[in-house]
Each structure stands twice: as C-alpha cells, then as structure tokens.
Amino acid sequence: MEGRCYCGRSYIMKTSWTDLNPGRRYSICSNFREAGGCSFFSCMDPPVCERSRQIIPGLLRRVNKLENDVTKLEKEVGRRRSTEVKLWLGLAVSWLLMA
C-alpha cells in the first residue's frame, strides 16, 4: 500500500519485529530518517497483547536459529558430497592404473 505523507513524498508500509511491537504494521515516510526529514509515522495495527509480546520474539529467535542450522547442514552435506566424489574418482583412477 502506498500513499502520500505530509511532505508530499510517498510513504511505505513496514512491519515491526521489535520485542515491543512484533508483527505490527506501520507507515513511514521515505524521507523519515533524513536530516530535516518528514515526521510522518502512522501505526496500521493496534498494539498486540502482552502475551503475544512475550511469545513472538522467542518464536522468531527459534525460527532464525533453525534456519541458520539448516544452512550449516546444507553446507556440510555439500562438503561431504564433494569429498565423496573425490574419493570415487580416486578409486576409479587407481583401478585404471592397476588394469
């Protein structure tokens, strides 16, 4: 969703993943962070309940850890496959040399 803010520039919608506002959508001016920039800021969603504020950050940390673990495992599988290919090639070459 795109619209115009106080300074006439377009604003953008983002989602907060801070511990205080997990999953809360808000609109902010594309000029917000610039020196002398626009101060347009508007929350789109109501605040989440206290229980959600306790649970969501922990779940996000778990998901991020699992994604990192999967990435590490994929790299390890790739290394092992590479080693396996090298061993098979070495075995094939040794058989050719013996024949």
Rank of each mutant, 00 (worst) to 15 (best):
R53G: 05
V77R: 12
G23P: 00
F41H: 05
V85Y: 15
R81E: 08
K72N: 14
C43T: 14
D69S: 06
V93Y: 15
M44Q: 15
L20E: 11
R53I: 05
L91Y: 15
R24E: 04
K75V: 11
L96Q: 14
F41M: 04
C7M: 04
R4T: 13
E67V: 02
P22K: 03
I12R: 10
A99D: 10
L73A: 10
R51S: 12
S30T: 11
C49A: 08
G8L: 03
R51W: 09
V63M: 04
G3N: 04
S52I: 05
S27N: 15
Q54N: 08
L73T: 09
E84F: 09
L97V: 14
R81S: 07
R51D: 11
Q54M: 10
P46W: 08
S39W: 04
L66S: 04
S94A: 14
R51T: 09
L91A: 13
R79Q: 14
W95Y: 12
E76M: 06
N64Y: 08
P46R: 13
L96T: 08
C49V: 10
C49R: 10
M44E: 14
G8A: 00
L91V: 13
R24Y: 03
T71G: 11
I28K: 07
Y26M: 01
T71C: 08
Y26N: 03
E2W: 10
E34N: 08
S30K: 09
C7Q: 03
Y26L: 02
L91M: 13
C7Y: 02
V48D: 02
N64D: 15
K75D: 13
Y11D: 00
P46M: 14
A92G: 06
V48N: 00
G8P: 04
R81V: 09
F32Q: 03
E34M: 08
S16N: 05
I12S: 09
S39F: 07
I55N: 04
M1K: 15
A99H: 10
L60V: 11
K65V: 07
C7G: 02
S16Q: 01
S27W: 12
V70G: 00
D45K: 02
M1R: 14
L59E: 05
K65C: 07
C38Q: 00
S94E: 06
E50C: 04
R25N: 07
F40P: 01
R51V: 14
L97M: 11
V48S: 00
K75Q: 10
G3V: 03
R24G: 01
